[in-house]
Amino acid sequence: MADALLEVTRVTKVFGGLTAVHAVDLEILAGEIRGLIGPNGAGKTTLFNCITGVYKPDGGEIRLEGSRLNGFKPHRITKAGIARTFQQIRLFGEMTSLENVEVGLDAQHRAGAISAILHLRRHRIENEEASREGLNLLRFVGIERYANEPSRNLSYGDQRRLEIARALGTKPKLLLLDEPAAGMNPKEKEDLMALIRKIRDSGVTVLLIEHDMRVVMGVCERVAVLDHGEKIAEGPPEQLQKDPRVIEAYLGREVAEDAAGA
């Protein structure tokens, strides 16, 4: 079979008595756009947090291109090639849009304090590269006109785009998007879908949490469904729409039985 970029094996996360993620397996292939759906509280964001090292999983294994990431600090995981956006926007509000992206780009940079103080070559090259590539990324997501605007002044939709640009700055192999369409109007959602495809075409694999089924159907080739912390189904979106377990998870048992009987 094709090489898996990300392998999540039996990952479990428990909060007190609540098992938010329970023995979830997930295999993401390089170059795909994978959807991750499920009702509220299903454990989608918690799974993201486990993958990115924000939470330490209580069990299971996470591998990127074959190497284990368990126990790495989040910044190490980012440098290993996994970047993310947040369901609730977490930009650096006082920094300009460009500076936000530059922080992401700095993940690739190595110049230390001495280099910065003495304006050594490495610092100059990297600093210059940060602003140039930062502008490129802002252009890529379509908000370069706000480059020098403090990021908290941006509209909701633009803030979500900026979060994507910032994450792309870290040069990820895999981009995790947590409900990027939340709060967007239909036009913005269209643009977002185009952007996600463009990201994939640029060589970045995408794992997308999304409640808006039109967006999921529009961009994802395959979708995994979580419910109560467990993966209950996986497959192409058209197929899942008819899957009784998925309908049950979303609508309850009776509706599911009615649908099956009809």
């Binding site: 947040f86 977490r90 930009l91 650096f92 509000g93 920094m95 700095d106």
Partner: peptide
Amino acid sequence: RAWIAIREDEVAAEAMGVP
């Protein structure tokens, strides 16, 4: 930039690769 990022949102800074 890393300092300001930490001041603004430490979780996000860490997630963007800031040690």
